[in-house]
């Protein structure tokens, strides 16, 4: 998911800033930082090499220079996003920017309000899709979980296929989410499909042996899908099981105290946090 986009002029001034999240940043601070780091790299590296990206824990900051290095486009996106998709979005945004504002002298320009017209283009071009795989045992718990995911949706209007479901997050209308239903029982057959998912949720129950059996499954997923993020949905607050699962499986875990805790609202919150990058 693309989280923020900034356009910085040659002088280090942020001329356009659009945030898809609620975590707003000071655009001038980011612009100043980018300009500083670029001039720093110019000084220490011969042949004037620009910094293209900065990798953070869950986020990646992409810096794309164009119009003879007079403009920098800065994109914050999640680590799980496909590089090819982000590359094409950056390219399209650059083309659109040049078409709309290419005639302006970016070295002298000061009137930032002129760039407000770029906002609808950004909103349209930054649309992305996330594939989320949810793996659980074939049990009553699965039914409850999926019933809550389907809640407030008329299934007849949606898919007939219960294994793939298009989900909407009101908070992030620019991303389309597809939820895929997988079973632990058919894990071996599901692995090729899971390797294509950006996020993988493992439903964990408070059972010692079942938790341990997930270790090798996580390893297999990581092997086939190194960029995918694996997360756990722990259901049932029994003893120290949630802590045990987090330590042994080494994945972030969303705990649901009981089956009653699986409400549509809680699930939405969980998806919101995950999509944002926990």
């Amino acid at each position: 998911m693309i989280q923020k986009i900034l356009i910085v002029s040659a002088g280090g001034l942020s001329v356009f800033y659009h945030d898809f999240t609620e975590n707003l940043v000071n655009p001038q601070l980011v612009a100043g930082f980018t300009t500083a780091i670029n001039s720093f790299s110019e000084q220490i590296i011969v042949n004037n090499q620009n910094i293209e990206s900065i990798q953070m824990n869950a986020l990646k900051m992409r810096i794309a220079a164009f119009l003879n290095n007079s403009v920098h486009m800065i994109l914050f996106h999640n680590r799980y996003d496909s590089e090819e998709v982000i590359d094409s979005i950056v390219f399209d945004l650059q083309l659109q920017f040049i078409e709309s504002f290419g005639q302006l002298n970016m070295y002298e320009f000061a009137e930032v309000s002129r760039f407000n017209s770029f906002k609808p283009i950004v909103e349209e071009l930054c649309k992305t899709r996330i594939d989320i795989g949810i793996v659980s045992s074939q049990s009553e718990l699965k039914q409850i979980l999926w019933k809550e995911i389907f809640a407030k949706t008329d299934i007849s209007d949606q898919h007939k296929d219960w294994n793939v479901y298009d989900f909407k997050l009101e908070k992030y209308p620019h991303i389309g989410i597809t939820l895929w239903n997988f079973d632990y029982e058919a894990f071996k057959h599901s692995l090729p499909l899971l390797s294509q998912k950006q996020l993988i949720y493992l439903v964990i129950e408070p059972d010692f042996d079942k938790i341990i059996s997930l270790i090798s499954k996580i390893e297999q997923i990581r092997e086939s899908n190194p960029k995918g993020q694996i997360l756990g949905i722990f259901i049932g607050n029994k003893g120290l099981f949630p802590n045990f699962a987090e330590i042994v499986l080494q994945i972030p875990i969303f705990p649901f105290k009981s089956v009653d805790d699986i409400t549509h609202e809680n699930l939405i919150n969980m998806f919101n946090e995950t999509v944002l990058g926990v």
């Binding site: 029994k238 802590n243 045990f244």
Partner: peptide, 12 residues
Amino acid sequence: DLAEFIEQNTDL
């Protein structure tokens, strides 16, 4: 029995 220990304790 680690499983029993994990089940019976709640205060980490």
